[in-house]
């Protein structure tokens, strides 16, 4: 067997391996167990949604996956290695886009921050910035400051900056929670098409059950105190999804019902 063939085989084997794993991951903060014994595997290219009542540990789980927290027990791995520090191939979209953007840099400057960190040469940056702005539907806004942009535009900008890292994985924490319904639906479809085109793995936290089913290949529901998995649903709805047809599909409605019942039971 040639070396090349063996390498190929190894690659295929890797691809079938999960990209992100939680192996009995536990996190204690300030003497409180926030996540306990969490087992979870995210496949490469998968769109995984996490739902759960407020305070059940969704953000904490995502921060563990991002390497912003280190587990107090168990392990969190990325691509087979322990995730101890954030890495550039994993991009994080924060819910509070207003705080995550540099107010003193224009839209172009904010995207440039990621390009600079990735060591992209100066002369390549303008082209990349223009392309990224176009990708997220912000062409012609390069010179605007975040304060001059609407919430939806700011969140688009944050997504563009994350895409500038050329991540293999996108971690999103209620990215559309603060946006109105119309903007939200538009951005849902954009994220779906952007991540499908680049086969990006996505872990998406939301408390909107419809959003979770609409976007995900799989939906996980967390139980609170401490956070652990309470329900796991595979979403067998065809792609590309459609805001009307998908949401009216009997399977969508069935999953929605199941998820609602779960959340209700956890809330008492």
């Amino acid at each position: 067997m040639t070396l090349l063939a063996r390498l190929d085989e190894a690659k295929v084997a890797r691809r079938q391996q999960p990209l992100i794993t939680f192996n009995g991951a536990t996190l204690r903060l300030g003497g409180k167990t926030i996540i306990e014994n969490l087992d979870l595997a995210v496949r490469p290219g998968e769109f995984l949604c996490i739902v759960g009542a407020s305070g059940c540990g969704k953000t904490t789980a995502l921060r563990l996956a991002a390497g912003l927290y280190r587990p107090s027990g168990g392990a969190v791995t990325f691509d087979g290695q322990p995730m101890l520090e954030p890495r550039r191939e994993v991009a994080i979209v924060f819910q509070d886009y207003g705080k995550a953007l540099l107010p003193w840099r224009t839209a172009a400057g904010n995207i440039s921050l990621a390009l600079e960190a990735c060591g992209i040469p100066v002369r390549e940056r303008p082209g990349r910035i223009a392309e990224l702005l176009r990708k997220v539907g912000l062409p012609g806004h390069a010179e605007k400051y975040p304060a001059e942009m609407s919430g939806g535009m700011q969140q688009r900008l944050q997504i563009a900056r994350c895409l500038a890292q050329e991540p293999t994985t996108l971690l999103m924490d209620e990215p559309f929670g603060a946006l109105d319904a119309m903007t939200r639906q538009g951005l849902q479809d954009e994220v779906l098409s952007l991540t499908a085109a680049s086969n990006t793995t996505v872990v998406f936290v939301t408390h909107d059950l419809d959003e979770a089913i609409y976007l995900g290949d799989r939906v996980i529901g967390l139980l609170p105190h401490p956070g652990r998995i309470g329900i796991e649903l595979d979403v067998n709805l065809s792609r590309p999804r459609d805001q009307l047809a998908t949401r009216e599909h009997p399977e969508f409605l069935r999953l929605r019902r199941q998820l609602f019942d779960f959340i209700k039971a956890t809330e008492h």
Partner: peptide, 18 residues
């Protein structure tokens, strides 16, 4: 300084001087 911005910097693996 907004702590979130430091997290953005960590996610981008920016150097200390940067």
């Amino acid at each position: 300084v907004e702590p979130r911005l430091y997290e953005v910097a960590r996610a981008l693996q920016m150097s200390r001087p940067a």
